[in-house]
Amino acid sequence: MAEVSIAFRLPVERAKIREFALAVGEGNPIFFDAEAARRAGYSDIVAPPTFSVTQMWHLSREEREERLGADLDYARVLHAEQEFLYNRLPVAGETLDATMRISKDVTKQGRRGGELRFVTYESRFNDAGGEEVLRALYTLVQTSKDPRE
């Protein structure tokens, strides 16, 4: 029996922010230097806008599939869309309480024939005070047959 949602935690660690910022070519000091971040109005270095994808370290695809039970065939799955909704950016030192659920699961007729199934995984990240920090919407598309055929 699939679960409705999965709760997990996303630590926002200083070294992880640095590693992630470097991986997207960042040079903005607010991601590397606490002093510069404080001058820009933050309490510590800031996580880049797409940082919450590091949730994959804390909730694997295998666990997600097993627990939420979308029953996707990953040989036919592509990442279609990604959206982030922000109240603020996370800062180093906090641990976010996260919840993931399937927020959309629709099947449409493809333009080239066949059916396309779109599944959106929504992750909400709240801070220690229970306020929502950001939301990430991860949308996969499953084609009706193997895309390489």
Partner: peptide, 12 residues
């Protein structure tokens, strides 16, 4: 800077 971001969306 990214501090003002409220929404960021991409389609692949």
């Amino acid at each position: 800077g990214p501090g003002g971001f409220r929404r960021y969306k991409v389609r692949f």
